[in-house]
Design a binder for these strands. Structure first.
Lengths: 336, 336
DNA sequence: GTGAAAGCGCTAACAC
DNA sequence: GTGTTAGCGCTTTCAC
């Protein structure tokens, strides 16, 4: 533990510089010296103090990840994709949860920046308040936006085609005879959610379905709020015949509400959710979803960030990954 | 960014030492100097370089977490509990996945130690190979074991009453008329799984049910392996009438296998899973589980670790949290 | 109360 | 090829 290059140097009978070179594998060291140093290091169980190395190198080989909640399978999968990519480059991930709260997000970013992360991947809670991100980039710390665009801030961003995916879902519902379609979403402060609502409207227009704005239930980013939103729609006399839910929390909440109200899927209420989930095929009936390549989202974010860290300048890039509709029956499709 | 205490000191017209004291809130500084320093820092947007501070303090205020896979809801929930507790103390979590591979776990631990984490929480992949953990503790870096005990290594450990919980599940199945009960588990290298198998045997004994060892399907730690294990049991002529699955991956895999084989739950095959999951109430029928307080597992691990970091010596502690059987119908219970 | 100076463990000029 | 030396940005004696 308390072992330093100096100790190794002494044990190997060379200067600290030589030991450092042998250990670091840079500069030139005689074969003999190198062997002695390496042997001493091995014998004494030396491991480089990365924080000291970071101080001089000006790089911590650590990248920060700020998500709403790592317990959310979406973020967990993205985190996994990210860690896989960056660890392959010797980077490690510092994790922070924002609980979708802008203030907590600020604190998280500050904490990570204080620890001098080489870069940051953030799924920002509020697409409008982004001065902390701008300040970070201005300070020379690369930031990649995950899943959620930010208005008025050109930054590397990795997301899915939210609008197209949502529109697709609505058309799918319309194709199966639905004219009265409700939507359950979390706050529109979340960039991707705002896009999905736009997609909802667009899809309706394309399918020539009238959009009843009162059928768009907007709530918080929790399952309870999803439940509440869906419930409010379902208890109306003129309730919709189909629901489009903007993410898994909303989907889950809506399914609870549907069960609570006692409606049969898909005959009394159809449903299509944004984002696939592991159990979608095991609930009854299986749930039709717009699936997104979540792991890849994290991977691409990692790649983009690594490029920036490696000094790649150039215009910010926006990567849009494609979503895919997976038809399982909950929209009233014929399934075998 | 390139701002240092020296810069602030200069801007405030004081020495670096005074600026550092004012900024760090220690030592004694005149009210006047303090104000000037703080004002300068604010104005120039100074933020302490924590890596430099870490180097001198010998503490990074960072703790390492090594799990099998953050995408696994169990680990995600534990991670969340852990971050909540340690962030409240100003610590941040460095995350690494081992994929339940001993070698990758070693590398992860090495990488985290190199970054001089103040402590480590690890859900170790192999309960028998623990020299890397022992070495870590010996080097003075506190380690808390999460979820999985390690044989022959006395360390702070937070886990659930695996054996009791598993026994309870089996008795529950026996209480509902099952005499031929199979078990699907991942590798016994995983400490908690080994305990659950012991609990399986114990529960059977208590319920005076004969244990057919060939009915214990042991596989890898993936859903596919869970599927495979369950399938192998279900396609037997003398197949069990009930299944106990050792964790969520196994439960999920088993449910797929059950569907594949075309058996009805609970009439043709009953099932009880270890560890609750969000969708358990929405699959049909709802799944009976032995639930564990996963978030608390992470929290307690955090508390234990923080205590050690704060210099609390004393004997290693083992915390066992209680599991709870939640009856939902998949074991053939009468449900309203 | 304040400043000068040493040092955390490492890397990297710069001489030899 | 190797050693000496000067920092990286911070904290912390030790004088004054």
């Amino acid at each position: 533990m308390g072992m330093t290059v100096g100790d190794i140097a002494q044990a190997a009978g060379v200067s600290q510089a030589t030991a450092a070179r042998a250990l670091g594998g840079y500069g030139s060291v005689s074969e003999d010296a190198r062997r002695r140093v390496l042997a001493a290091a091995e014998r004494l169980g030396y491991h480089r103090n990365e924080v000291a190395a970071s101080l001089v190198a000006g790089s911590t080989r650590t990248i920060g990840l700020v998500v709403g909640d790592i317990e959310n399978p979406f973020f967990a999968a993205a985190a996994r994709g990210l860690t896989d990519v960056v660890e392959a480059e010797g980077q490690t991930v510092l994790l922070a949860n924002s609980d979708e709260d802008s203030e907590r997000e600020r604190e998280a970013v500050a904490a990570l920046r204080g620890r001098r992360v080489d870069g940051l991947v953030v799924a920002t809670a509020a697409s409008s308040e982004a001065d902390h991100l701008r300040a970070t980039v201005d300070a020379g710390v690369p930031v990649v936006l995950l899943d959620r665009p930010v208005s008025g801030l050109k930054l590397d961003t990795v997301m899915v085609d939210n609008e197209a995916g949502a529109a697709r879902a609505v058309r799918h519902l319309a194709d199966h005879g639905h004219r009265r379609i409700g939507m359950v979403t979390d706050t529109l402060d979340i960039g991707s959610s705002a896009e999905r609502v736009r997609g909802f409207r667009r899809g309706a227009r394309q399918a020539e379905v009238e959009v009843d704005e009162s059928l768009i239930a907007v709530g918080g980013a929790t399952q309870e709020e999803g439940y509440r939103g869906a419930f409010s729609l379902l208890e109306r006399r003129d309730r919709p015949t189909a629901l489009f839910t903007a993410n898994n929390f909303m989907t889950y909440g809506a399914l609870l509400a549907i069960r609570e109200v006692g409606l049969a899927i898909p005959d009394e209420i159809a449903i299509v959710g944004f984002d696939d989930f592991v159990w979608a095929t095991l609930v009854n009936p299986p749930i039709t979803v717009v699936s997104q390549p979540v792991g890849r989202l994290g991977q691409e974010a990692g790649r983009l960030l690594l490029e920036r860290i490696h000094g790649n300048g150039g215009e910010p890039r926006r990567i849009r990954l494609r979503t895919k509709l997976i038809s399982r029956g909950s929209a009233g499709e014929e399934t075998s």
